[in-house]
Design a protein around this nucleic acid. Structure first.
Lengths: 373, 373
DNA sequence: TCCAATTATGAGAAGATGCGTTATAAAGCT
DNA sequence: AGCTTTATAACGCATCTTCTCATAATTGGA
């Protein structure tokens, strides 16, 4: 009586083949049995057996056959992305964004609300919970339930999902954010730094899609940094990787200083710069210089392929990026590419969705685990 | 007629089980069949079949049974570490060190020689080849031959093993070092930066044994840095990760400047500092400050668990490390541990051995590959 | 010296899984 | 109605693993 999931007996074959079938099914969209067998590298019979297993578990279903074509129409099967859902949250100082996504990563419900930046932690959490549960309810009785939930927030978040340092959100320091969001849905909860999640989102389906080593710069009143190497998030021992707060840098300058000097908002400033206004161009250059300074530290350290710029200043577009490229070219041995964020303000919640999906997929594949080692 | 190594049919089971047996055999040393079966999580019969396969391939052999114990003496089997060998090379400006190691990573032969730092590239390469082949010959007719060879050197080495920038070794820039060492032995060749390989060595069997995220500081006239995250070497897109040459740092100072000012060698200086000599202590503090500056950039970027200090200045021992700790504590949000190198000057060649072993183990396991995906 | 206990070894049976082939039925198109 | 393609079922065959039981080899004590 050996425990399944560890044994390397014949049952392992079945598990592996079912896993391959599931993989092929998710990858190739709705498919006929023969296509599926070919894609999974199996005989038709084996694929059929695997599909029966998957259907019994609610992971696959039959869909309408394809139109046209000669001969008897082949039955077609599709992955049931609604077999499970995940929650992704962005809990920022001024904004809360909640997303519900299915196992395909498609967002099926979304709630956004603005908050006072002085809002106490308890009320902020309550709002976040309400936004998230509203998403779940809006999507109807989600058959698979919520498999995992992730929250992104500003500040340092450690490996366990606890907020270690937060200067921007009152009462946030010491909060077990991962535990909170997990309890709301009775599922595994995760939490991470906002810039890190934004980096994950861009790598998943954004500007960094084709790149595995990247630095994300989340601009705002202070710049945050996210680091992805080999396609995986690097947060370091304490979660403070990329927190450059105390690295001694000559001439480092917060965006807030520059914007205060400018006497107008970022968007106005960028517009003026695009119009060619001299003073505005100089200020944009200073903004770019400050961002490049911070990024250059990470670039020198890990030599990434790409720097993605997101956050409030990303609205500057090419006016800002062009200056950043110029400054980085001066500062770095091997200047990387610089690209704007694809998802903008949604990137944090979207990255949270992706991180929750990582766990959901683990759960999805659990019954079909390979053998060790 | 399906290609083996990809199919998920019954033959896969055999491969997987043989792989597990090989794994257990390497891990547990000489073992009896029953012990092996238990360690691999297999039935005795299956383990026996796997062992027969391994023996036929020359990867296992029977050794003398254990002494004592009741009952019929069990036959014992051991992994044949001499089924293959790897070459690790350190080709530095003033020194060449070659090692030959078996599949256990045990060094079976070693050659060391000092060189003129102005030696032209071709002659330096010839010396390195001679040192390496001398190791192979000294070890006798290595039955398994050389499966992989790696060379470490100063300068930037790209992913393909080509030296991109080298300021310390004449004629080195542009050299296809990996290709060279591969050709010498007709096997896959690799090359990497010295500090990176030293980091690998310390992580393998040195001070960073129990740690997966670390920064290695190779001290000398200029400091080089090696970066290991998740136990894997990170060299970045162009191989220049950790090359801090152009990061703007206030007060950065080469060791050579301090040593020139000191008017004596590093060892003398440290000895004086240990004796409590005031001026020496101040100079050591400046050395430590410079090293901490460089390390702090990487620490802020990736938040490692440990900083390992090796190279010529590592002879300073605690006098130096203590000052580095103090400076890092000031500069970093989360100061990491700081430890001295275990292998000292041998770390580069030893790291090269480890990198070559990575490929050798891949070759070793190749016949027992798992299925995709 | 001989016997019993202990442990390893070897051979055969049973069960699970996969693949290939074959035959027959079903469904749609022309 | 005939053609084409798919679906379903069944059989044979091969591989691999585990279980069981009989047998061999060795040690230690009587």
């Amino acid at each position: 009586m050996t425990t399944p999931g560890v044994t390397r007996d014949a049952a392992l074959l079945r598990r592996l083949n079912t896993r391959a079938t599931l993989h092929a099914l998710r990858r190739g969209g709705p498919q006929t049995l023969t296509q599926l067998a070919r894609a999974a590298g199996l005989s038709r019979q084996t694929a059929e057996a695997a599909l029966a297993d998957l259907t019994a578990r609610g992971l696959a279903r039959e869909v309408a056959p394809a139109e046209g074509g000669a001969g008897r129409p082949a039955r077609r099967f599709a992955f049931r992305a609604d077999a499970g859902h995940v929650v992704g949250l962005d809990v920022g100082p001024r904004r809360i964004l909640a997303m519900l996504a299915d196992l395909d990563g498609d967002v099926v419900a979304e709630r956004r609300l603005d908050t006072d930046e002085h809002l106490p932690a308890a009320e902020r959490l309550a709002l976040a919970e309400r936004a998230a549960t509203a998403c779940v309810e809006a999507a109807g009785p989600a058959r698979g339930g919520v498999w995992a939930a992730t929250a992104g927030t500003s500040g340092v978040v450690d490996r366990s999902g606890r907020v270690t340092i937060s200067t921007l959100i009152p009462g946030w320091t010491g909060l077990d954010l991962a535990g909170q969001v997990g309890r709301w849905f009775g599922c595994p909860g995760f939490a991470a730094n906002d810039a890190n999640l934004a980096a994950v989102a861009e790598h998943w389906r954004g500007s960094a899609r084709h790149v595995d080593d990247l630095v994300y710069v989340l601009t705002g009143y202070r710049a945050g940094h996210g680091l992805l190497l080999d396609g995986r998030l690097r947060t370091g021992r304490t979660g403070s990787a990329g927190e450059l707060g105390r690295v001694p840098l000559t001439g480092w300058e917060d965006a807030s200083v520059v914007l205060a000097e400018a006497g107008r908002g970022a968007d106005e400033l960028f517009q003026a710069a695009r119009a060619g206004e001299r003073q505005a161009l100089a200020l944009v250059d200073r903004l770019a210089h400050g961002l490049a300074r911070g990024a250059s530290v990470l670039v020198a350290a890990v030599d990434p392929e790409l720097v993605v710029v997101g956050g409030t200043l990303a609205g500057g577009g090419e006016v800002l990026l062009e200056r950043m490229r110029a400054h980085l070219a001066e500062m770095c041995l091997n200047p990387p590419e610089v690209a704007p964020s694809t998802f903008g303000e949604e990137s944090i919640a979207y990255g949270a969705v992706r991180m929750a999906l990582d766990h959901a997929e683990q759960k999805l594949m659990e019954p079909y685990a390979a053998a060790a080692p």
